[in-house]
């Protein structure tokens, strides 16, 4: 069995990659992918912790169920996000977030 810490390290690395990606990438679609990466890193750690607590916790399913909630919510968020990106592409012919600089002060 792979030790718990390996999974946790992987999950932390994925989360950091996602968080960094949002900060340094300029393409809205890639930023969305980075958000998904962050959420899936959390999902991974949920599943792992659920297995770790399987033996001695009454609410073992909470971790696994949470994963499903996160996936559905992420899908809803992406639906809104992609719609916005389409609208912005129509008016700007670009989805580069550096082009979005009407608001400043």
């Amino acid at each position: 069995m792979v030790p718990l810490n390996y999974y946790l390290a992987l999950s932390a690395i994925l989360f950091s990659m996602g968080a960094l990606g949002i900060l340094i990438r300029r393409n809205s679609l890639i930023i969305f992918m980075s958000v998904e990466l962050m959420l899936n890193a959390a999902n991974l750690s949920f599943v792992i912790f659920a297995r770790q607590w399987a033996a001695n916790s009454a609410s073992v399913f909470n971790g696994q169920i949470f994963v499903f909630f996160v996936m559905t919510v992420a899908a809803a968020e992406v639906a809104v996000g992609l719609a916005l990106i389409v609208v912005i592409f129509r008016s700007h012919q670009s989805i580069d977030i550096d082009q979005l600089n009407n608001l400043k002060g």
């Binding site: 009454a58 609410s59 809104v80």
Partner: peptide, 29 residues
Amino acid sequence: LKYLLLGAYSTGFVVFGISLIFGATGTTS
């Protein structure tokens, strides 16, 4: 779009934070 992107970013932090709290205690209640 800005609200959505930063909102999703913050959601990522909330979810990861909850996963660690769940890992530390074995429950979400």
